[in-house]
Amino acid sequence: MPDVIKADGSVRQDNWVVVPRPEEGESLAIPSDQPALIPADLWLAGYGHFTGNDQIGVWFDSHDEPEIIADKVNELPLIGVNFPRFVDGRGYSIARLLRERFGYRNELRAIGDVLLDQLQFMKRCGFDSYVLRADKDISQAAKCLNFFSQGYQAATDTDLPLFRRRA
């Protein structure tokens, strides 16, 4: 079971699995005994089938468009956003759109090439759980989530950019 870091730096375990996109001609292999994140477009394609199932969430890859489920986000217990490489910054925009534009309130998880030094950016953009890449030292996560005590900008974490707090 993966260790999952929470936005407050605490670590817990859960058994959500990320189901990869099936190859051409293959079907989606959803485990029967574990909650699973499936590609968002496939969830939408089988929409009626998954409705009300709190064991099914979705994940977006960095080039995916979160707009496709804009009006349905809160039907999902968990959304994952994949960072295929840690230098691919598209996931930050996806997270802010899910939170700030589509009003997603449930858990938002960073998955993939998730390293320590990006955690605070992820937190500011609305991620509230993080599955660190396996070789990284999870004991440093709490520190890395809180390198900065404040930021200049408004983001998902605050409606008050520094220029409004100074006024």
Binding site: F86, Y92, F121, Q153, A155
Partner: peptide
């Protein structure tokens, strides 16, 4: 100030 440590745009 806006661009300094902007959380969304550090990995363009």
């Amino acid at each position: 100030q806006w661009s300094t440590f902007h959380p969304e745009f550090a990995f363009l």
